[in-house]
Design a protein around this nucleic acid. Structure first.
Lengths: 242, 242
DNA sequence: CGCGAGGTTGATTTGTGTCAATGCACGTGG
DNA sequence: CCACGTGCATTGACACAAATCAACCTCGCG
């Protein structure tokens, strides 16, 4: 649970009682098996879903049988903007690994958001999520397979680091090459080959699920990933000055 | 200005005084020439920007010299989620046609959002915008040039209709083929050729800027555009029941 | 020991990109 | 009033990244 709290604190400095509020948001917990759908297309989403543990993704199945992963949800990620109406899904949410989720009612989170620091944090989180989507659009539209892969790796590394789930220069990449392909709009074969190139050029290495980054600077440069944009440090400083 | 109001009313039924609130949100107006940047990468965005007239877009210039348009802003569209902190842009906002914008302070819009119907409307608008982004991701990742084009046409048609800027089966497409290419992650040449195919198969026709849709059903089917998902009618019904 | 999921490889095809030229409409200045 | 320039659409030839198809390999597990 504290993954969520940990992430929110990049957006705003929360006092003890506000932290407690956040921790108590979910009113119901659920475990989902790997590959199971949390929510399917057509379902009505009444509560917000908070990923507590494991990797999940939002995806859409197309008419032509292909699949596109819209976004990856890591521990601490909310399924939707926090102020949302219930609505009908036109895509699905599925577990990549076994996943534990917490359900949060709209009322509960809006109550919490009446505290301005909590509200700031939630809005920051929302903006962060939207930023990721925008970068995803840019990558799919204008980057090569290798660049997209490098970008994804940089991004996952940063996000996992934020929630304390990376070890310096390595993290557990819990996705198959087919899933990565569905995320990046590529075929499995192409993912495989691009990954090989990154390995051969000594930018990364892989053992089991563990992906190690040997040259983060180069990986960022190659993919146009700008870590500084998310200024994970600046924001805290700025908040401190308030 | 009433484009914004008109759109918001798809999200919530606003009373007269709430409508007035919305109309009075902008505290400052500006005109931007076609192709001029409203906000450039690196700028700090203090106020929200509301497009009052004309077409604009959010785009990012890449290291390799290409450009990707992230989203298109039509009259009545807000530049960012309404509850956002000031923040530094990592992309730019530019006018496609001459554009008139209104600047809205965060404080003003948050005040307005203390009225629950206004808040509902703004959250609905935010969700609508995010939906468009998600569909954009799906299209870029998994659809062919022709499908992407058809999808864009369907989507623009729907959005323009919502704000009273389409005539039944036609609308003014205020984008060059190069701009469409930057939106859909395609080259100008490919846009040109795909457009020709759509014309040859009698799905659309073009005269000057006016694009006419001859077979909306087929265009939707071809591109996987699901108009019903946005249930522009359902939502009003649902609100009516509250 | 055999099976299945996931990773790897090679051969081939194909959708798009790139480059470069041409056409066309429109506006401007001599 | 015409020559010219400019921005945009169109076309053809060619190159290339990535998709597809089809094996084959490997490793963990029942």
């Amino acid at each position: 649970m504290n993954r969520f709290l940990r992430k929110l604190q990049y957006g705003s400095e929360l006092m003890a009682e506000e932290q407690k509020l956040i921790l108590e948001l979910p009113h119901h917990y659920r475990n989902i098996d790997a590959r199971g759908d949390v929510l399917s297309e057509g379902d009505e989403q009444k509560n917000l879903i908070l990923v507590l543990d494991g990797w999940a993704c939002r995806y859409k199945l197309l008419e032509n049988g292909t699949r596109q992963i819209i976004s990856i949800l890591l521990p601490g990620d909310l399924s939707e903007p926090f102020g949302l109406h219930p609505h009908c899904m036109d895509h699905s949410l599925c577990a990549i690994t076994p996943v534990m989720i917490g359900e949060i009612s709209r009322a509960a989170i809006m109550d919490a958001a009446s505290f301005s620091r909590v509200s700031d944090a939630l809005w920051w989180d929302l903006f962060f999520t939207i930023s990721l989507d925008r970068h995803h659009i840019v990558g799919l539209g204008r980057r090569s397979a290798k660049e997209r892969l490098a970008h994804l790796i940089c991004q996952l590394h940063m996000r996992l680091e934020m929630i304390g789930m990376s070890e310096d220069d390595s993290f557990l990449l819990m996705m198959t090459q087919a899933q990565i392909g569905d995320m990046l709009g590529l075929s499995t074969v192409q993912v495989n080959r691009s990954l090989q190139v990154l390995r051969e050029t000594q930018l990364i290495s892989q053992h089991q699920n563990r992906l190690t980054i040997h040259d983060l600077t180069e990986l960022c440069a190659l993919s146009g990933f700008d870590r500084s944009y998310f200024h994970l440090d600046d924001i805290k400083d700025q908040t401190a000055n308030d």
